[in-house]
Write a protein that binds this DNA or RNA. Structure first.
Lengths: 275, 275
DNA sequence: CAGTTAAGTGAACAGCGTTTACAGTAAACG
DNA sequence: CGTTTACTGTAAACGCTGTTCACTTAACTG
């Protein structure tokens, strides 16, 4: 047992051997992700074969098949979140509402275009997954992004948020000290009602997108994104976006243009398992 | 090829052999369901073994493993829907709002108590499943129940529903002639806006419940049902349930009592895969 | 009764996650 | 330097999966 550094998430240095190990570890996750993206089934044997190894060797790096799945789920979420952030960054930094809608819409489009990835990250029964490293994994980095974007909207054009003593006591505890890793530390206590609003929004967004991805909805509604737009339309007032300056129509137009941008998503109405 | 009756869903008569066949078919589905309820993995071999048969024999009845899964999913949904209906029927027939909330709350409790069943029925990528018999399968019988209950609420204490020409054109087409099997035939054209409201409601309900079941939410919020109650609270006005006669508080109390009734659902905060 | 059809079996194929016992090799230590 | 230790990978095997194929056995049919 060497002194052993405290397990930094990404190990740049270390003994020559440790670097090699970290490299193949990364290759394993990358290979698994590639396999998944190609529509193939994710299996230890397939990953090993593609790397020119045998399946049991992988057990030197991951404890089980499930752990590998969790790892690529985390990785996929990380990359997807970057996509969402990029969609927001394509807009004027001053346009906080637009950035939020852009990111959220990008999330929806991503989910529809990559149903398997979506299910892996967002429709997976989290539990027991006390993953070795990266013990967060529980909640998505996407979540962190969304919290920030909503916070930005509030900072730029404040809207009423529930006071702490208006919230159910239990909810107050949760927003003050959330178990789920949301980086809300930079939100002052009196603004923590925002977190509850965020949860409500995420709840609604998740509902539509999940139903759409699973195909539990009329194909025409999915393709047109009408239900998704409806959710935005109904949630916007909560964020004070229903002003008299045409903000909401502009946002809806923004979303609609993004939706019409790639009709590829679900062509024939059957999401199916491919892509 | 005998004349062959037009495939009634449940074949009572027929040649003696056909009755036998239908019986073992039912036994297969029942056995599979039992296995699933016990927490065991669903597999053709396990089902066959429990029935005293071998796996290949099952292929005389189901075309593939996936088809068996679809069949038990349909069956589970059917039985669960009966539970929800029973919860509604426990109330005064005149109390349409109460019946709706009772059924919906029962749905949530059922989902939390049987996460695997929920995932099978409601979080399954529908697609390709052109099941031999019972070609509906696509959408849940639960859905039909909910539509009826909302319709009852509207019939008893009418609330404003969007006119057809207020709806986005595509949505209008959908509510007038839904692809997804909702028995909306008895709803007159001018009231078809109800269907859109139903979809909105189902969307929100699905969002909370799915997030709760998957564990993608703070355990304390799940256990207390605070987010679920919040969804009801926010959706009630749409159904005109926010009157001055204390209807909404009564409904919330109804739901809360049901929630507190069995704290068993998720004890330690980890839904896990059992039960 | 003879002929056809359906139900069920056993063996086999290809694949899966996982474990075990065993080589080789790179690092660490005296 | 040599020796020991720890690590990385392999081969073989176990038990499981869905699925197919050839074959028997029983039941129904003309």
């Amino acid at each position: 047992m060497a002194p052993a550094d405290p397990l930094p998430v990404t190990t740049p240095g270390g003994t020559r051997r440790e670097r090699q190990r970290e490299a193949t570890f990364a290759e394993i996750v990358a290979t698994a992700q590639a396999l998944l993206t190609e529509g193939a089934e994710l299996s230890l044997r397939a990953v090993a074969a593609r790397m020119g190894m045998t399946a049991p060797a992988l057990y030197r790096y991951v404890g089980s098949y499930q752990e590998l799945v969790d790892l690529v789920a985390y990785e996929i979420d990380r990359q997807a979140a970057a996509t969402f952030a990029a969609a927001a960054d394509a807009l004027d930094p001053e346009d906080a509402p637009g950035r939020l809608i852009a990111a959220v819409t990008e999330f929806r489009m991503w989910a529809l275009a990559h149903p398997r990835h979506f299910q892996l990250v967002f429709a997976n029964p989290v539990a027991e997954s006390f993953c070795t490293r990266r013990e967060l994994l529980t909640l998505a980095t996407s979540g962190l992004l969304m919290t920030d974007l909503i916070h930005d909207v509030h900072r730029q054009r404040p809207f009423p948020i529930p006071a702490l003593d208006e919230l159910p006591p239990l909810v107050r505890d949760v927003v003050l000290d959330p178990l789920i890793p949301a980086n809300v530390d930079h939100i002052p206590a009196e603004e923590r009602g925002l977190v509850w609003i965020y949860m409500q929004g995420w709840n609604q967004l998740y509902g539509v997108v999940a139903l759409e991805v699973m195909g539990h909805m009329d194909p025409r509604v999915i393709e047109s994104g009408e239900m998704y737009l409806d959710v935005i339309r109904r949630f916007a007032p909560i964020l004070g976006l229903d002003d008299d300056e045409g903000t909401l129509p502009r946002l809806l137009d923004l979303a609609r243009r993004r939706i019409d941008a790639d009709p590829s998503a679900i062509a024939d109405g059957s999401p199916s398992h491919l892509r």
